[in-house]
Amino acid sequence: MKNLPLFGGRNLSAWLVLGCSLIAISGCGDTPSASPTTSVTPVETSVASPPSKPTSIAVETELPFKFPLTGLPSSKEVKTRPYMVMVENAPQARPQTGLDQADIVYEILAEGEITRFVSVFQSHEAKTIGPVRSIRPYFVEIGDSLDAVIVHAGWSQDAMNIMAGRKLAHLDEVYGDGAFYWRADDRKAPHNLYTSVDKMKQGVEARKFRTEWNGPLLTFAKDGQNKLTGAAVTHIQIPYLQGYFVSYEYNAAEGVYKRSMDGKPHVDKETGKQLQTTNLLVLESKHKILDKEGRRTVDVFGPDKGLILQQGKSQQITWERKGGLIRAYAEGTEVPLLPGNTWVQFVPEGTAIKTE
C-alpha cells in the first residue's frame, strides 16, 4: 500500500459450377447423390450434400462513426446535445439508478461533506436516472462547457444567476419543469426524484431548446491501448471528508476499474450491476467553504495535479480545462482516453490517495 499525495464466396461458386458440369457429364444432373461410377468423387460428394440454407461468410465491418464522449463505435453520426443530470449521493439516495449508462461522471463535493454526481448522457437512452437534486455554480460550469442541457431540481442563487445570465438550456423540476420528472414511491422525498432520456427529450421539445450539439471533442487512443508510463495500480482509495471514501479495484478480465463506496460494491439500483469505468481520473482542485451552510467553490478549470488510471496502470498528470473539456496532460502532451466511459474524481488539494 502506497500513500500518494496527488498531483470467400467466389471460390465456392467456382466449385459448384465445376461440380454441376461433372455431374451432367455423368448423367446425374438432377440427382442429389453422385453416380457410383463417377471418377470425381471429391467434387461429387461436396455437391451431393448441400446445406439446407445458403451459407454466408462473416465479414467484420467497422462502424463508420464514434460516439463523441466515449469513442465507441456508432452506426450513425451523433450530433445531439448531451444531458447533464445532477444525481444525489447522500446515503438515502443510494443505490442510484442510471449512472452505469452515463458516458462521463464527475464526482465533486457539495455542502454537507457529501459528494454529488455530474452525470453526462449522450450514447445511451437511459430509462431511469436519479435521484435528481439541485445544482451549484461549479456544476453549471461543467454543463456549460459540454454544451449540455442541464437537468436539476433546485439551485443555489449563484448557480441560477449563471444559468439566467448565459441563457443556458436547463430543466428545473422545482420551478416549472415537473412534467419531465417523476417521484418513486419506495423512497421519501427529496431522495425519490427521477427522470429519463425520453422525459428530457420531451422537455427539450417543449422548451424549444436547440438540439444540435456544438460541444467539444475528447481525444481517444486510436489503437485502444494505453501508453501510461507510471506504476501498476490495481486498487485505489479516495478519501473524502467525514471518513466517507470511494475505492476502485481493477478487473483485468474486463479491463475496467470497479467502484465501491464505504468498502461495499457500488451498484445500480435497477440492474444490481457494480459501477465501473474504463478511464479513471483523480484530480486535485482548490476547494473553499463559502458560508455556514457549507456551500463551497470548487475549481473546475485548473491547471492542477492529478492521476489517471487505465488498464491497470497509472500516470501522474496535470489537468486543465481546454477546448471546453477537462483534459489530462503529461509533459505538455495530452493523454488520450481509451474508448469507453470515464469517471472523474475531484478532491481537495493535498488529499492522500492510497494505491496498491
Rank of each mutant, 00 (worst) to 15 (best):
D144S: 07
D144P: 00
L146N: 03
L146T: 13
D147T: 14
D147W: 13
A148D: 09
I150C: 02
I150H: 01
V151N: 05
H152L: 08
H152G: 12
A153F: 03
G154I: 10
G154K: 07
G154M: 12
G154F: 13
S156G: 02
S156T: 10
Q157N: 12
Q157I: 14
Q157A: 11
Q157T: 14
D158K: 06
D158M: 06
A159V: 05
A159S: 10
M160V: 00
M160W: 03
N161T: 15
N161C: 07
I162G: 07
I162L: 13
I162D: 09
I162C: 00
I162E: 12
M163E: 00
M163R: 01
G165R: 07
G165I: 07
R166D: 09
R166T: 15
K167S: 12
K167E: 10
A169Y: 00
A169I: 00
H170A: 11
H170N: 15
D172C: 00
E173G: 05
V174K: 14
Y175S: 04
Y175M: 03
Y175T: 06
G176C: 02
D177H: 07
D177V: 00
D177E: 08
D177N: 12
D177M: 05
G178V: 04
F180I: 14
F180T: 15
Y181N: 06
Y181A: 03
Y181C: 05
R183H: 15
R183S: 09
